[in-house]
């Protein structure tokens, strides 16, 4: 329970709360010689009460103006989830349908399907942090790991925009690992690679990846959107076929991923339904223990301050209503009053 104000500069006005204690909140009445009467305890109490009410009203109004509130905070809780970097292939082929041609009529491009299903996935995950990286001709850093769902969804909304020419998956992956490195909160981590193709990864980049993953263990998921006619991840070459990364990049990327020394699952999807199934499976797998912080909203107390001020002011107004009216209100009697006062002192 910590009290705080939004605008501390207004608190200066609190000095005015002392005013009613010093000055008179009522007018002098031209009764002769009343000042010589000894004040009875009840009157004194009443006067003190009214002064106090006025002080209190001013103080409460100032606190309301300054925006008094109970400070919010955050508590750490444990739940299910993970920090996931979504690494999206933005090569031009992603804009085709699963049949490998520009989508027509009812058809949906691979990237549009991925976008739709990934958005739904992100929205259902309660405690996850997401980061987005894209790769095509070059790796593109989009969004660092964040809990802000709006930003994640806005970044996912961009993935079905026309992409570029090539597929530089190796450097893209290195960037995704780098994004995990940059995120300092301890959490279970995963990379979800969404692509419709693969490429030969440079030896040098392979070594870098291996080293980076040894330092920063992540679960790796590859959601491969297989286009008709593509050999795919699990293709076994015939004995007389050349089994080289250039010829069968998907198969060899899959083999490389298996040797990276991190938990790895590959999903090969040929239609939107298969993508949905794969994402559901990942959703199930990535329910690991995660510590997350829950923000506690601050409690606004200014309304309470205004309420108390109103009550105090109501008392003052009531006192004003009961106050004896000015018997004579012309200048000469006031003058007489002041004259008599002047004499007494």
């Amino acid at each position: 329970m910590i009290f705080d104000v939004d605008h501390p500069e207004w608190l200066v006005l609190l000095v005015f709360a002392a005013l009613p204690m010093i000055t008179r909140g009522y007018r002098l009445q031209p009764y002769p010689a009343l000042g010589q009467e000894l004040a009875d305890p009840l009157s004194r109490l009443l006067e003190l009460g009214l002064r106090f009410a006025a002080s209190f009203a001013i103080a409460a109004l100032v606190l309301g103006l300054a925006g008094l509130h109970l400070e919010g905070g955050s508590i750490e809780r444990t739940g299910e989830g993970a920090h996931i970097v979504i690494l999206v292939d933005r090569s031009a082929s992603m804009d085709n349908s699963f049949a490998g041609r520009p989508p027509s009529g009812e058809e949906e491009s691979k990237s549009a399907t991925a976008r739709r299903l990934l958005s739904a996935f992100v929205e259902t995950r309660q405690h996850d942090h997401f980061g987005i990286a894209a790769f095509s001709t070059s790796p593109i850093h989009v969004l660092p790991l964040t809990a802000e769902k709006d930003a994640v969804l806005a970044a996912i909304e961009a993935i079905d925009r026309p992409g570029l020419a090539f597929t530089d998956v190796g450097r893209g992956l290195a960037m995704a690992v780098g994004m995990h490195n940059a995120d300092t909160t301890p959490a279970p981590r995963a990379i979800l690679l969404v692509s419709d193709g693969a490429a030969v990864i440079d030896r040098k980049v392979q070594d870098q990846l291996r080293k980076a993953l040894a330092r920063q263990p992540v679960n790796l998921y590859w959601l491969f959107l297989r286009t008709q006619g593509s050999k795919g991840i699990f293709y076994q070459p015939k004995p007389d076929e050349v089994d080289s990364p250039e010829r069968l990049p998907e198969r060899h990327l899959h083999k490389l991923f298996q040797t990276l020394g991190v938990p790895y699952r590959a999903f090969q999807a040929e239609n939107p339904q298969a993508i949905a199934d794969a994402i559901r499976e990942i959703d199930k797998l990535e329910r690991r223990l995660i510590r997350y912080t829950e923000e506690i909203q601050q409690t606004d107390l200014s309304a309470l301050a205004y309420l108390l001020a109103s009550v105090a002011l109501l008392a003052l107004v009531a006192a004003k209503m009961l106050e004896a009216p000015a018997l004579v209100a012309d200048r000469s009697s006031v003058r007489a009053l002041h004259w008599s006062e002047g004499r007494q002192s």
């Binding site: 933005r90 987005i132 894209a134 593109i140 989009v142 969004l143 660092p144 964040t146 802000e148 709006d150 930003a151 806005a154 970044a155 909304e157 961009a158 925009r161 570029l164």
Partner: peptide, 19 residues
């Protein structure tokens, strides 16, 4: 090359700045 679709600036202040 679109990185992110338009998002509200105040609610997404931190991620926008980092992006």
């Amino acid at each position: 090359f679109l990185l992110a679709a338009p998002m509200e600036v105040c609610a997404n202040f931190a991620p926008l700045k980092r992006m």
